[in-house]
Design a protein around this nucleic acid. Sequence first.
DNA 1: CCACCAAATCTACACCGTGTCGATTTTCAA
DNA 2: TTGAAAATCGACACGGTGTAGATTTGGTGG
Lengths: 213, 213
Amino acid sequence: MSDTTQDAGTDGRRRRTAPTKGDLRERAILDAAEQQLASAGYEGMTVATIAQAAGITRAALYFYFGSKHDVVAALVERTVTALRAEIDAAGDGATPGQAVRDGVERTARMWREHGTVMRAAVELSPAVPAIDRAWRSAVVALADTMRGVAERAGVPAGPGPRDAAAVTAALVWMTERVFYQAVVAGAGPALDDAAATLTHVWSSALGPDGREP
Amino acid sequence: MSDTTQDAGTDGRRRRTAPTKGDLRERAILDAAEQQLASAGYEGMTVATIAQAAGITRAALYFYFGSKHDVVAALVERTVTALRAEIDAAGDGATPGQAVRDGVERTARMWREHGTVMRAAVELSPAVPAIDRAWRSAVVALADTMRGVAERAGVPAGPGPRDAAAVTAALVWMTERVFYQAVVAGAGPALDDAAATLTHVWSSALGPDGREP
DNA sequence: CCACCAAATCTACACCGTGTCGATTTTCAA
DNA sequence: TTGAAAATCGACACGGTGTAGATTTGGTGG
């Protein structure tokens, strides 16, 4: 029933001002969750272990978050906020080919730095609506940026299953999936190889103007 | 693969011969699980409800399957077995473009017919190793056939992040993800539009010989 | 026909994780 | 300093999974 995330305001349980004490605990909880997400995975970590790592009790954690889902949702949202900056700065390449290379490389960097949280976002999206919203928003943000690049590269903009929007959407999902698999595989150069493959496919799909040299 | 869980052997709990009575119940359980997977989703369905729908008790279900995970894993394996036939028959197109169209259309048909189970496979792969193995086997099977098509279309075969294997792998993951999203969206023509977009991208990525007319 | 053995099923229970409740302590500003 | 809100805690209820042991069913060889 708890509502933690969206409709704060009249909650009565969450504090509305932003003093220091509680905020620190909240961050500590998120940090503990991120830590254990990497080491034990979602199922492996429990509310008890998160609370313990944060130096409080289970019940105390429920003062800050309404559920285990809410904890990891907040964690994903925290990370997605960071991704947004990176995404908005993409697509500035002079040529479409340059923009594609830049977009893929930026995405690869995100997966290198925030791999565990992004992996969790992908895996928990089907189960947690809040995570789905946050993750999807990041995906459409990137898709939007790249749609502009595609149109500049000559891909028709008109509506239809072959227009720039549909094509870039498919390519962004490809990018998500391939990088996700690379992170799951865990191999060292997996991400770099994946990036190379992805730029190649992106360039091919964006037509002659997007082709790499 | 027809044997639901391979680690039986010295189980002492599973029957080894294959009479009729038990097999029917096993199928009834799987059918009930598939039904409820569509109506209530994985979390929404419980071992109790599955057993009830199959006309037995919880404990009786545990005579056939070791866990809830095992049930849905067996369900996925049953479906993947059906997919294999479809996959193996693909890639026979005269021209690469024809083969691509055929492969995508075949895949779309699979999603139309077995959408709920395939969706569950995607969503539960991270959590259930047996499902991950089964689903991944189907993916690499399709990737393998399409790799042949790509090489016939002129994509270099040599090792590297731009070779036919890497490119088709990325495209197959794209196909999986885009069709998955279409099924999740649930809209009627979503799958057909997705198929059109996918054939277009596939053709572009496979180079001049794979290009559509 | 019956006695037996394995298959199949049931009832009852133990365990674990989540989320909630009411009471208690801490903090801090009026 | 005191009172209210913030923060924390111990204990409990609930639901779902998996297990144990006893019991019934069903077919087969004597």
